[in-house]
Structures are given as structure tokens and as C-alpha cells.
């Protein structure tokens, strides 16, 4: 029993939250963190008591119209956001939790939980979700490539083989032979188109050989043929000095944003703009579609992390990523990267 008391004492003292326990209006006990807060930030426990007191009074006030509200009267604790050291350059944000320990003895506690830690935990959780999403996306991509190879490429070649076997049949007239060889040619032609299309989807060689702008034009052309939606690519940018990573990310963002616009926006025109300035390069994808409410799509919606993933990829390379959209008013996706060498090259 004594040992348990020791552990509890240790837990109380080493907690990362600052805990104050009051009886009536006097401070009874406080843990190590609370003492440090009191010394370093000159936080007066009586001030906290007053904040808690006013919040309690506000909540239980008769004029609030909820004095007899059963649920609220049963609540034994209450949390209030609180900022300490707000005149310094680094204000500290806390949640102050007021909880009643013993109603008859007028014993209650005030706990300050750092919002920084809570935010950090949220961030970590978000990151884990993202990692899971990226892994799943990898697998899905492989599954899709495998299915494409099997269903379209393999089938096409198989049909051509069957056709060639039929060519060996000696009974065919010249006319039949011509017709059959035409069929085989068509099948091989389709297969060739599929292979080229797949190669382009996986990793466009244009991007490596001719640069970002031509690659975006090829992409736009292909998606335009596949959807009927006009996709314009305009811009003036020397992308040869950009790192391969930045080029890839810009290309993927354009791809994802155009795909999103085609899938969800009901757009009739999409414009892709790539422009470099002296110290930065900027990519914009503008559509005239339905638009959406951005905040409600920023966190994980259970299905896809497209926006979050785009944003993380840009941030990882020191860029900024922004989505502007309003319901019924189109969407603009912007990615901007700082470039140190661009200006220098232009001056030379």
C-alpha cells in the first residue's frame, strides 16, 4: 500500500501536466510542473482559481437559462482554453481543466495541459495515416499495373498469336488473307498504344528527356483525349535547373489536380500554368468546375488523402501548396518552390 502511494506521488510529481489542488480558496498541493510554471512564468495559482471560478459561474449561471439542466449539473469537470505568457514572443497555449474532487469538502483540482503536446500528437497521428495511405496507394498502383498488363497487353498479344496461327491455314483466299492480316495489325497497333499509354502513366520519359513543360503538354493532351475536357497548358519556364525531385513533384501535382478536376469538378475547361520568376517557380491548375469547401476536405476523410498527400510532398521540398476553392466557383491549386539557381542562370 505504501509503495502504491509512493508511485502515485511520483506519477503526480512527474506528470507533464501542471496540477494544482485547492481546498476552498487555498492552494493545498501542487506538482513539480505546477511549481515550475509558477516560478518561471510567474503564474499566480489564485489567478487560475479566478479564471476557473468565472468559467464555472458562467456555465452554471441562472441567467444562462440552464441552471436546472441535468446534464450540465452532473458534469464534474470543465475545460477552458488559456494562454500564458502572451506578451512574450512565444505564448504558451494550454487547456485548463477544472475538476471537482470532493463536492462536500470543496476540494477541486486545476490541470494545465499543454496544447503544443496535443497538437504534436495530432500531427503524429496524421503522419501515420499518411504513411499508411502512401503504402496502400503503392500497392493499389501495382495492382492496377498488373491488371493492365494482364487484361489489355497480354490479351492483345494473345489475340495476335491466334490470328497468326490462322494465317497458316492454307485454305485462305487472298482476300481473306488480307482481311486477317489487317485484323492482326490492328490488334498489335492497339496493344502498342496501350503499352505507350501505360509507360506514360507510370513515368513519362518526356519529363526526363524534354523537361517539365513538354511533359505537362503530353499529359494534358492524353487526359483531354480521354475525357473530352479542354486542358490548356501555358507557361514560360526554364525547368532545366530544377532538381529532379521538384520536377517530379510538380508533374505529379498537375496530374493529381487535373484528375481530381476531371473526377469531381464537372469542369469544362482546365488551365495549367507554369511560370518561373527570378527566385521561385509557380504551378497553377485552374478549373471552372463545381468547386468545394476546402476546410472540410483537409483532414482524412476515410477514403483518400489526395490533398494532404499533395501538400506533404510539396512541404518536404520546402515549397508551399495552396488550394483556393468556393462552391460553384471553380478551384485553383497552386504549388510554389523557391529556386536559388534560376536567377543566377538568367543573369549569366
Amino acid at each position: 500500500m505504501l509503495a502504491t502511494k509512493d508511485w502515485l506521488g511520483q506519477y503526480f510529481d512527474h506528470s507533464t501536466d501542471a496540477i494544482f489542488i485547492f481546498k476552498d480558496d487555498a492552494l493545498l498541493v501542487q506538482n513539480q510542473m505546477a511549481k515550475e510554471l509558477e516560478q518561471e512564468l510567474k503564474v499566480d495559482p489564485m489567478y487560475l482559481l479566478q479564471v476557473a471560478d468565472t468559467s464555472v459561474k458562467q456555465k452554471y449561471s441562472q441567467t444562462n437559462g440552464c441552471f436546472n439542466c441535468i446534464i450540465q449539473n452532473k458534469m464534474t469537470n470543465l475545460s477552458v482554453p488559456l494562454t500564458l505568457a502572451d506578451d512574450s514572443t512565444h505564448p504558451l497555449h494550454y487547456f485548463m481543466v477544472y475538476s471537482i474532487l470532493d463536492k462536500t469538502a470543496h476540494l477541486f483540482s486545476i490541470t494545465l495541459k499543454s496544447r503544443g503536446t496535443i497538437n504534436r500528437m495530432d500531427q503524429l497521428a496524421q503522419q501515420r495515416k499518411l504513411t499508411r495511405y502512401v503504402n496502400r496507394a503503392h500497392e493499389l498502383e501495382r495492382k492496377r499495373i498488373s491488371a493492365d498488363l494482364h487484361d489489355s497487353i497480354a490479351q492483345g498479344i494473345y489475340s495476335a498469336i491466334i490470328g497468326i496461327r490462322r494465317l497458316r491455314n492454307a485454305d485462305l483466299s487472298t482476300e481473306q488473307l488480307t482481311a486477317l492480316s489487317n485484323v492482326i495489325e490492328n490488334q498489335l497497333d492497339d496493344t502498342l498504344k496501350e503499352v505507350k499509354g501505360m509507360a506514360l502513366d507510370i513515368r513519362p520519359s518526356v519529363l526526363d528527356n524534354f523537361g517539365l513543360l513538354p511533359a505537362l503538354k503530353v499529359l494534358a493532351n492524353r487526359l483531354e483525349e480521354n475525357s473530352g475536357i479542354t486542358i490548356e497548358v501555358a507557361g514560360k519556364a526554364d525547368t532545366s535547373v530544377l532538381s529532379e525531385d521538384v520536377q517530379s513533384v510538380l508533374y505529379r501535382i498537375a496530374q493529381e489536380a487535373i484528375n481530381n478536376a476531371l473526377k469531381h469538378a464537372n469542369a469544362s475547361e482546365i488551365t495549367v500554368l507554369l511560370v518561373n520568376h527570378q527566385h521561385f517557380i509557380i504551378l497553377e491548375i485552374i478549373d471552372d468546375g463545381d468547386g468545394f469547401d476546402v476546410p472540410s476536405h483537409q483532414s482524412f476523410n476515410g477514403r483518400s488523402l489526395g490533398l494532404l498527400n499533395m501538400s506533404e510532398r510539396v512541404k518536404a521540398l520546402n515549397g508551399t501548396f495552396n488550394i483556393k476553392s468556393k462552391l460553384h466557383d471553380g478551384t485553383t491549386v497552386t504549388a510554389k518552390f523557391p529556386v536559388a539557381d534560376l536567377g543566377r542562370k538568367q543573369h549569366v
Binding site: 498504344k193 483525349e225 475536357i229 479542354t230 469544362s268
Partner: peptide
């Protein structure tokens, strides 16, 4: 409804 269809290139399969 519109002229978008003119831009489409059919993909076999």
C-alpha cells in the same frame, strides 16, 4: 449537350 465529345479519342477495350 455540348461539343466536348469531339475531343475524345476512343481507347480500344
Amino acid at each position: 449537350q455540348n461539343e466536348k465529345f469531339r475531343k475524345i479519342v476512343l481507347r480500344s477495350g
